[in-house]
Design a protein around this nucleic acid. Structure first.
Lengths: 334, 334
DNA sequence: TTTAGCAGTGTCAATAGAAAACTGCTAATT
DNA sequence: AATTAGCAGTTTTCTATTGACACTGCTAAA
């Protein structure tokens, strides 16, 4: 358990390091608290023993360790209220009724990225609890057919097929009708199974060249399920502004992870508050942190995440996400 | 007009610089041609007078200028044949009939990026000469409506609308029917005009709350027209491997340009061969070059472009694109 | 418990010198 | 007239050294 003074010192070091990116010396701190630098140094040794602070080299100042950041956000930090100006920016986007929901969200994460100067992303609701609304095909020129899969929440996945000449448009229609009759209303994550065991045999009976058609729809369903949500980024290169990312290899690594978005698993974790993943917890890079929250606007769920350096202004970011959660998409309806 | 020897020297310098990224000295060259380094130096002075070579500082070796590269690709370079192994990789993708066209192309630019180690992108055909196939709406839960615009080439644009409660589904249907009756078959780039002058008055007559519905479709059409083609990247960060991109600001600039894809205008320029845009010609960065070609597979047109450092292996890249053009999408049918 | 004071340690910027890598030019050679 | 050897001159790069600076840890005193 830390003493009050130790907490104060840790808080000061974290916030100062966040501001300057430079190790904090005992001297700087003793101006804030009224005690000598030697006292501070003694305390710093203790905090280092607790693994809350780190040194770069023997005679350097201290900076927060990953655990130090964690202690800070859990125990010391106070979310910072947004400026009125920034609130206004967000409100005008959200009350612009001419934009559709998707556009509103895209626009607003751009604002968030601009306000915070960090990369921001939004993760649409996973399609997994969508149900199939309908399947549709539209014949185009020659032997091409546009096939679409539409869900009850408005997801659309489409593919253009080049059909072998041996398949007639009637057979396509038959297949579509069968799928519509048999699986509409089924949750998407159950559809592959149902397709394979209930639908395939029936199609095989009624449609001659069923294989290729069946496979197409099977693929489309799988795809909509796998890219289980759309991800939109804003300010993807913001982190390049931070001094800790002057190493090209680091940059490359992070950008590739952004593209593979393997880290989104973190995002879908169930939690109703604002969650903070620091450094190695972020699953992207030891040098990055993620602050995320879920939103819910008129039943449309999703996640907004802000990605910044470990040395991120957590108080500001958490304040911002709190605001969004409360004022815009905050119906906790689990 | 250059002498044979001057051409040989220029060619050697370009190719050596491409390989090593280091200025080439007279000494290295005189091992290749059988003459002394002094002779080479005399020639290099002449080539520099022609603005084909550059020096970094007084006593440095020479490297190609932008014009030097241009002279090289136009007069000295010979496209290099692909290795059998690489050909095979591409062929297996292209003859995989279970993939639809879009997936085939995406997969193949991934292969191209892997083979070349450069960023590769594909630019779908512009939607401008598409015609409207149909407009469709699907009512979802509550007051939400999915609206779709579909073109004859298989483009699909969709939006989810939150309708005010005052609008009935019948009115939506009426609007859609009217649009379908009046503008199906119209080329997309003429549709805004037609909508505004021919359709709007009629809708205004038959539909009560027509404004919001009309605007939605108007927006959707505009959007499909403006994002006039889809762009897919592969190996977006490949250029970070090159030594000339160790400057974070340069990196940031290029990545942002990739995202804004303002440079695609270059891509749509009409030309049937393989085009090379070097340095400032590329409209991305003075340090990058673009090599592109159009393809045409079963009537589906598009452009494949390879983006690499100015110091790019033009012979290999041109050889690769030649191969793609000839073996896969090379019907010159303008 | 706290503090003053100091020795010890590592960073950083500046400087200097020497080696390396080339070129341009001149004068001799073919 | 074209080519070449040779050398002076230029710039980069590497290494070493230095002194100033910024801290810390520890000790001993308050």
């Amino acid at each position: 358990m830390l003493t009050e003074r130790q907490k104060e010192i840790l808080k000061y070091i974290v916030e100062e390091y966040i501001k300057t990116a430079k190790p904090v010396s005992s001297n700087k701190i003793c101006n804030k608290l009224n005690c000598s630098s030697a006292t501070i140094r003694n305390e710093m040794v203790i905090l280092e023993d607790y693994h809350l602070l780190e040194k770069n080299h023997f005679a350097s100042g201290r900076q927060p360790s990953e655990e130090g950041y964690r202690y800070y956000v859990n125990n010391l930090m106070q979310p910072k209220n947004m400026s009125g100006e920034d609130m206004l920016k967000l409100q005008t986007i959200f009350h612009n009724s001419t934009l559709d929901l998707n556009d509103t969200i895209k626009k607003s994460i751009e604002i968030v990225s601009e306000i915070t100067n960090y990369t921001t992303l939004v993760l649409g609701k996973s399609a997994q609890d969508n149900r199939l609304k309908k399947v549709e095909t539209i014949p185009l020129e020659a032997n091409k057919v546009l096939t679409m899969v539409i869900t009850d929440k408005g997801f659309v996945e489409h593919k253009t097929l080049n059909l072998p000449l041996t398949i007639s448009t009637e057979e396509v229609k038959k297949t579509v009708d069968l799928i519509n009759k048999l699986v509409v209303g089924t949750p998407l994550d159950e559809i592959s199974e149902k397709l394979e065991y209930s639908v395939k045999p029936i199609i095989a009976k009624y449609v001659k060249q069923h294989e290729i058609l069946y496979n197409t729809f099977y693929d489309a369903f799988n795809e909509i399920n796998h890219k289980n949500s759309d991800v939109h980024f804003a300010g993807k290169t913001k982190f390049l502004n931070q001094p800790e990312f002057n190493d090209i290899d680091k940059v490359k690594d992070i950008l590739n992870k952004f593209d593979n978005i393997s880290f989104v698993d973190k995002m879908t974790e169930d939690d109703n508050g604002v969650n903070i993943y620091i450094g190695s917890d972020s699953d992207i890079s030891d040098d990055l942190s993620i602050v995320k929250t879920k939103y819910n606007i008129d039943g449309d769920e999703g996640t907004i995440a802000i990605i910044g350096p470990k040395r991120m202004e957590y108080d500001k970011v958490v304040g911002l996400l709190d605001y969004i959660k409360q004022n815009i998409g905050g119906q906790d309806e689990n």
